[in-house]
Design a protein around this nucleic acid. Sequence first.
DNA 1: TTGTAAGCGTTATCAA
DNA 2: TTGATAACGCTTACAA
Lengths: 361, 361
Amino acid sequence: MTAPGEAARRKPARRPTIKDIARRAGVSESAVSFALNDRPGVSQDTRARVRRVAEELGWQPNSAARALSGERAGCMGLVLARPAQTLGVESFFLQLVSGIQEVFAARKIALLFQVVADLETECALYRRWWAERRVDGVLVVDPRTQDPRPQLLASLGLPAVVVGGHAEPAPDPPDAPRTRPLLSTVWADDSKAMARLVDHLYGLGHRRIVHVAGLPGLAHTERRIRSLRTEADLRGLDDRQVRSVTTDYSDAEGAEATRRILDAAEPPTAIIYDNDVMAVAGASVAAERGIPVPDRLSIVAWDDSPLCRVTHPRLTALVRDTPGFGRLAAQELLAVLDGGPLRTVQGELPHLEARESTGAP
Amino acid sequence: MTAPGEAARRKPARRPTIKDIARRAGVSESAVSFALNDRPGVSQDTRARVRRVAEELGWQPNSAARALSGERAGCMGLVLARPAQTLGVESFFLQLVSGIQEVFAARKIALLFQVVADLETECALYRRWWAERRVDGVLVVDPRTQDPRPQLLASLGLPAVVVGGHAEPAPDPPDAPRTRPLLSTVWADDSKAMARLVDHLYGLGHRRIVHVAGLPGLAHTERRIRSLRTEADLRGLDDRQVRSVTTDYSDAEGAEATRRILDAAEPPTAIIYDNDVMAVAGASVAAERGIPVPDRLSIVAWDDSPLCRVTHPRLTALVRDTPGFGRLAAQELLAVLDGGPLRTVQGELPHLEARESTGAP
DNA sequence: TTGTAAGCGTTATCAA
DNA sequence: TTGATAACGCTTACAA
């Protein structure tokens, strides 16, 4: 039974099971299970004794056994579908994860994390995780305007929360009936944020503004582009005065876009960048050409980071509480797992941190 | 279909099991298991039929059941012990993870990822994962000079590989007997890298060099500091000419250290920064003070990133293949799991990418 | 308040 | 080459 010789070559120390606890506490296995899971049907006395023994033995429930006996896997999934190249540049993602984990860790829930190349692989992975019963739920990031994931996850019955999704999905094509969202969503109000941004720039006197957006197809990219147009229309600015261009979020494309923008016949007096890295790259292009910031060009970064504070001049940025957003998403996923209703939760509105890179044109 | 309020009653689609396959293929469960796991003892014919049915049903092994019946969990662990603040600044980490996953994904192994506040929590987590049988092995990052983790993991018998560890642990205290490493290790030769760096700077004519290192206590920090001293000694430079200061890797401390360094009576003509963010911050401080780079100050970043290429001037950097390093680590962990010997594997030597931030003083 | 026993989906050990 | 059958560690009816 407890003969150590036969066990294995590497002799991994034996992990205690409830059987061990039952034997030592002199009760049955089920009593142990009840005691440890705070279920009624066991005396205070036994409960205390069982708990003490479990503590002594350093017992932890075998996650596989738990998952197998119909309980939860105690694990959530998060997939990031991005080409390896785009990885690790923005601070956004790791901060989001850190917030997510804060919530999960408190409940002893683990996070399965995987980086894949594309959306198709991501979907295949969800299918596999579902079939393997590996995760209890998933957080979907980087939602797209045409996104197959909510449909897939809903059909699998795999609990999920979309992080950064839309409050109201744009009907696409425009005359299509508005469908109810398939998954719970946490989102940030990009429209209001964009409005603040435009307010700031317009107030300073800017009339020619270019928005260097991120990847086309991402929901928030499209949302920001639409919002900018709306704000421009409100102020009577046409699409030669105010416009958006898309990029892949990289420093290279940010710089390239900036060059093209500055080469135009009537270059803008302000540029809004959809992330910190492109903003820094853009500022660098301006410096290269001897264009003074903010005197001849104002620069704003959507998303703050140390980068924005170490450049010279320091960059005005839209500051979000990213870990907080992650916490919110994690909480919402827990709510979904607890049988909560499908809903849409709004995150904190980002605020504009005016620094030295914006001023009157 | 499903009313929003009744999410709890949602009936998840049933996942196929080998029982389903057995029934449909008209064989026993064990035959199915053998067929699907490439084990002998089943005819070619049956094997093919079983496989076809499994494919049709979209069957995937239930990970919990597999893990419970003595197989592996199909999961590796990675813990990052850092205060949330330091997170997401460097590109290093996500790239490392991306490389790790490439190897694991090919074997359908998942990665459990957790961010914790400190080393103590990390150790507690290893204990829990071990007791829960949640992971088959772990990758240990950010090794320290005094590190409790190898000891702990070895005693638990939890397979592990140290990422970025030392080839030869410094005896600590100096007269202590040299102990054999407890875990397999993949490492990069920081000494040679530092030698290249000093060669480059010394060759340009620099005689006063300061090294703005990262967190004290991290193995590679101490290693780099020692290497710099060795290289300085070789060239007859004393510790007022060449020295290291430690920081927490943040842009703030990088900038602060730079200010102090430049305020010294005899400021250095070159500064080596232990990461990209501090290098950029340092360059910004120099710009702030009107110190021309590289004419009066040369700057080198240990670790390249888009950051180093978007600043003005672009920063000379030590380029590593970080995803490659991650792949190496993952492969080594797989080797350990397959019963391979304890060993120390060396990663690719980083190369110096000379850009505009270094020149003759 | 307790203990017994039947699952959960695999893998592994036997006979047939 | 097959098909019962017993683990694995836990939860949970159900019986005592």
